[in-house]
Nucleic acid binder design. Structure first.
Length: 355
DNA sequence: GAGATTTGACCAGA
DNA sequence: TCTGGTCAAATCTC
């Protein structure tokens, strides 16, 4: 569950930052603007409710000692798995009761357990739709080095709305569109593709593009992919892969859109111009948030709880919830809300690699 | 000129 | 019959 909470917060921050950067473009698209705001509000409301459920039920000490806050850093990088944002995950959980029980659920009244599961499920399903937070519960394909856009071997699609008979080797992934530069095509996935068709699809605002592997003729590689820009999320592509590559001849830029974790060698990794992509944005935020959570001890008074490191984590965590509360429950939009959040992140933008 | 992309037509599954 | 998927000629780009 803690992974779920982390991912929810990260997702909310990410959405807000993306919205901020796209404000000039969205000025004349109020419908998209409204939808974006609603998504952000929804995410942070869920975070807040989840936190309050946990605090109210278990008290701060248990909260700290178990999932919320405690171990948050340990799990951070796992949930920063590029899949979480590149959207290559495909959630398979559909029912509330399928959300596995986590530590902090134990001892809760059933209705609270169910509510927490519901919140997590909603987020996971949202992630599945939007390409964010897939498999955040640490499913079989989760974790760094899990399924990447280059790895189609293990999963088959959970979406079977197609009508063709050859649906067996179909894998549907969500990929964030680049926020700058050419955002008409999804990020490279390591293979070279040749576009062979484009078609308007009924019920979709954007046309679907059809690609075959450029090695099809040379090596009879049967791999194909379809790229469909989502109607409600123009910056997200739904990429459908069909048939496995048998060529494995990557392009010159044989780099799947997977982000590397921050360097552990002490050198600060170069920070890209922000934001270059949804993934980069999220990794950037995530990295700094969790380094911050784990590395900055609380200095002010507050609730006494647990071990020394954990209190800082909890206070920071509480701040996030408070910020969400302030932003979305004050009734009045504060113009500096975004600044409040992101200035705190910016303050630590260059922290990692320094110590 | 080669390779990539576009686009209208055709095919085939539901 | 409708619609998604593919073909192939035309066009574009390097």
């Amino acid at each position: 569950m803690e992974n779920c909470l982390e991912s929810m917060i990260l997702h909310g921050c990410n959405l807000a930052k993306i919205l901020e950067h796209n404000l000039p473009n969205l000025a004349n698209q109020p419908d998209i603007l409204v939808k974006s705001c609603e998504e952000i509000v929804s995410v942070f409301r869920n975070v807040r409710e989840t936190v309050l459920l946990s605090v109210g039920q278990m008290g701060v000490q248990e909260l700290h000692g178990l999932g919320i806050g405690g171990g948050i850093r340990e799990h951070a990088m796992a949930s920063l798995d590029a899949r979480a944002i590149s959207g290559v995950g495909t959630a398979h959980i559909r029912r509330v009761d399928d959300v596995p029980e986590s530590g902090e659920m134990k001892g809760m009244p059933l209705h609270d357990q169910r509510r927490q599961r519901q919140l997590c499920l909603e987020f996971m399903m949202f992630g599945e739709m939007s390409g964010v937070g897939g498999d955040i519960m640490g499913g079989s394909s989760g974790g760094i080095g899990g399924q990447t856009p280059l790895d189609f071997s293990s999963a088959s699609s959970s979406q079977t709305h197609g009508r063709r008979k050859n649906e067996v080797d179909k894998v549907v992934k969500k990929v964030a569109a680049p926020q700058m530069g050419n955002n008409e095509t999804p990020p490279e996935d390591g293979f070279k593709w040749k576009k062979y068709g484009q078609k308007e699809i009924l019920g979709h605002a954007y046309p679907r593009s059809y690609y075959i592997c450029t090695q099809q003729k040379l090596r009879h590689c049967p791999a194909k992919k379809q790229v469909q820009r989502l109607d409600n999320e123009p910056f997200v592509f739904e990429v459908t892969y069909r048939n496995n590559h048998i060529c494995r001849v990557p392009s010159a830029s044989d780099a799947a859109p997977v982000l590397l974790p921050p360097s552990t060698t002490g050198q600060s990794p170069p920070l890209p111009p922000f934001p270059t992509s949804l993934m980069a944005t999220t990794q950037f935020l995530s990295t700094n948030i969790f380094r911050h959570l784990g590395g900055v001890p609380a200095s002010s008074g507050g609730v006494e709880a647990g071990s020394s490191g954990g209190r800082g984590k909890f206070n920071e965590f509480q701040q996030v919830a408070d910020m969400a509360d302030a932003m979305f429950n004050s009734g009045i939009s504060r113009s500096n809300s975004m600044d409040l959040i992101f200035s705190s992140l910016d303050d630590h933008k260059w922290d990692y690699g320094r110590s």
